[in-house]
Amino acid sequence: MAEVLVYVDHADGVVRKPTLELLTLARRLGEPVAVALGTGAADTAAALAEHGATPVLTHEAAEYADYLVVPKVDALQAAVEAVSPAAVLVPSSAEGKEIAARLALRIGSGIITDAVDLEAGDEGPVATQSVFAASFTTTSRVVKGTPVITVKPNSAAVEAAPAAGAVEALSVTFSARATDTRVTGRTPRESTGRPELTEAAIVVSGGRGVGGAQNFAIIEALADSLGAAVGASRAAVDAGWYPHTNQVGQTGKSVSPQLYIANGISGAIQHRAGMQTSKTIVAVNKDPEAPIFDLVDYGIVGDLFDVVPQLTEEIKDPREMSGSQR
């Protein structure tokens, strides 16, 4: 069976969920071979084996953290040369896409970015993409070289499939360009304790209607009652009410959760681009004409300052709710 290279996104050995989703998709195409780089690479093996990685190729070197992108391209290229895979899958993060693009160019292959699904086809993998702010769905194939495909988070359900997962050292020689762009400082993001925006099953977002930074507390309270991640529209981010890392939309994160709750968000095309593929969409907005209502499964026309706290209370204290059920 053909081998499929999967680039592992991990933090000091802890594998991020999108990589496990990639392993699920990779198994549709062949036998997954994982590539884990940098500090803690070998620690990823157990989680990867549980999800179907046969060997886990690892390489640790300071270059992966100290220089931008190119060392990782060098390593992935070494893995392609060692394995001759049928396809290369990379998580669709900003960095993942850059790594994949440079790799594709080096190995003379085509690249498809931001796939939301992947199937085996007679002429190689067929990737589904969601384009024009998710108003169109396309399927594409790479027609030259080894398909290099980046896949968005939440594109597949993670399935366990225990495999050998033996750790093998990958031999990497860094290129002359590897040390071109130096990382001279790094400030890690503070953890909020909430789920990752792109990985969360539920996202609760606030927009300009939230009206101020302090008011985001009511959005956070609703999110916490549901174990959800918090998102924001660009209007709320530009106003300085919430960090840019939480922005949902074209120039922020693209999310595809089971449930998306938009509060005080009008639903501009650039916002829709980042949330339109959510399974269930709910909105609270005081303007019945707001375009967000075209997308919703359930919408409340009302003031979010009344509706959101009441909803949060109901979730935290369902006894009262059973009283109001018909």
């Binding site: 089971q258 709910v282 609270v284 919703v296 359930y298 919408g299 409340i300 003031d303 369902p318 059920q325």
Partner: peptide, 23 residues
Amino acid sequence: GTIVNDEGEGGKQLAEFLASQKF
């Protein structure tokens, strides 16, 4: 979808919807 005007019970109605969808 279903669109409801909040007449004071909007949050509760939304909670019922979320419960019906098993969220």
